[in-house]
Design a protein around this nucleic acid. Sequence first.
DNA 1: GCCAACGTTGGC
DNA 2: GCCAACGTTGGC
Length: 152
Amino acid sequence: MAHWLMKTEPDECGIDDFAKAPDTPITWDGVRNYQARNFIKEMAVGDEVFIYHSSCKHIGIAGVVKVVKAAYPDPVQFKPQSAYYDEKSSVEKPRWQSVDLSFVRKLPRLIPLDELKALSGLEDLALVKRGSRLSVMPVSNEQWQIILEQVS
DNA sequence: GCCAACGTTGGC
DNA sequence: GCCAACGTTGGC
């Protein structure tokens, strides 16, 4: 099983949106970056994902969700009324991918970004690298464990 | 295929 | 709200 981290603005879709309807998967749409898209394609059912809250008051890792449906064409790329509409994409040749995610748990406390930056063993995590804007990234087993140990 | 201009991300 | 860093676009 692989591990991942996905950034989100909690005002739009945070861990609490998963928690309030734990049996309802949420479609992760709107990723419009090729490197992130490629990671989405690699995700498999059962993979666990850290949910990271960005651009908000409390920045950091807030919880865990899991992949319940592997990559398929992002539905909003075909909807002209969507902010994520892509006129250069087509049903025949879709450009962007989504996965469906379900709630697993909130962490006992949020792990703030500056704490993650200070941990040894996370130097290679794209999240803590200066200037990284990648919104979907792999997390190694070692990195996953190091992060979870902070709240266990 | 280079690279300047532009738009976006995201911490502060 | 600022702005640095990054990704994308488009002229040449």
